[in-house]
Design a protein around this nucleic acid. Structure first.
Length: 156
DNA sequence: GCCAACGTTGGC
DNA sequence: GCCAACGTTGGC
């Protein structure tokens, strides 16, 4: 079982949207590094940190779980979608989706600034290479992050 | 295959 | 809105 961090803009789709619909297709990934992870490594049962980007409080907002593994992202074949890719075809699809399910919303977002200031997290992909939208998270990083979230719970 | 120009992501 | 850090495109 592996751990991941998925980014999204909460204006488009955030933890509250996932909590409402319970299960959602993770689509629109158009970066080869992220695609390769989705295609080759993300598996059913993997745990996912849902990260909110480009918003007021950027950071980790909650947890999701992978419930369906790699399949072609249907938006790449839809000419009306902004994710349409004319160079892709159903017999040779270029882009990949997975499905995730809601697990938990944190009482409050764990801010990026807190993650950056924790020496135990200085090797996180999120810290070292900000721009990747699907990132691996180590078991240790996962535990440190949940520890920070839980400490926030008891302080409140 | 190099590299300049351009486009995108995403924090601040 | 700015800008740094990437990624992609296309001429040669």
């Amino acid at each position: 079982m592996n751990y991941w961090l998925f980014k999204s803009e909460p204006d488009e789709f955030g933890i509250d949207d996932l909590a409402a619909c319970k299960r959602e297709r993770w689509d629109g990934i158009r970066n080869y590094q992220a695609r390769n992870l989705l295609r080759d490594q993300v598996a059913v049962g993997d745990q996912v940190l849902l990260y909110h980007s480009s918003c007021k409080t950027v950071g980790v907002a909650g947890i999701a779980e992978v419930v369906k593994e790699a399949y072609p992202d249907p938006l790449q074949f839809d000419p009306d979608s902004k994710y349409f890719d004319p160079k892709s075809s159903p017999d040779n699809p270029r882009w990949i989706s997975v499905d995730i399910a809601y697990v938990e919303k944190f009482p409050r977002v764990l801010p990026l600034a807190s993650i950056k200031s924790n020496p135990q997290l200085e090797e996180m992909v999120l810290v070292k290479q900000g721009r990747l939208s699907i990132q691996p998270v180590t078991a240790h990083e996962w535990q440190v992050i949940l520890g920070m979230v839980n400490r926030g719970r008891t302080d409140a």
